[in-house]
């Protein structure tokens, strides 16, 4: 279970209080009735689904109830930062970046797991 920092409550709370709300910084097109089908599919369905650093929205459902943004590593599930909704995409603090790089990534090959164990 994840421990998530809500930038409004300024507290680390359990994942049970939060709802994931998809990729962050997707703006609804202004003239949505005039865009092409391709552009609508892009806006509505296509997501980055990054392996590694991702920017996403969360909602503190059973807390303050507000949406906010987070930067997370989807391999280690480590949160690099959270920040308030409405702010532009924030750069990752250097210290967090280093800590994330130093942290052992999930290994998925037999050689890497069983091999080491031997």
């Amino acid at each position: 279970m994840l421990l998530i920092h809500c930038p409004y409550c300024e507290e680390d709370r359990s994942e049970l209080e939060f709802r994931w709300a998809g990729e962050a910084h997707i703006a609804r097109p202004d003239a949505i009735s005039e865009i092409s089908d391709e552009e609508f599919a892009e806006y509505f369905f296509l997501r980055n689904n990054e392996k590694g650093l991702t920017y996403e929205r969360w909602r503190h459902m059973h807390g303050c109830g507000r949406f906010f943004n987070a930067a997370r590593d989807t391999v280690s599930d480590r949160f690099l930062m959270t920040y308030k909704a409405g702010l532009p995409k924030q750069p990752i603090p250097v210290a967090e970046e280093r800590a994330a790089a130093a942290e052992e990534k999930t290994v998925e090959t037999w050689e890497a797991t069983e091999g080491d164990a031997r």
């Binding site: 994840l2 392996k51 991702t54 996403e56 599930d77 999930t106």
Partner: peptide, 13 residues
């Protein structure tokens, strides 16, 4: 789990 992840693990809850 509710969030995107490639971690090949998941929440205990």
């Amino acid at each position: 789990d509710q969030y995107n992840s490639y971690s090949q693990t998941g929440g205990l809850q």
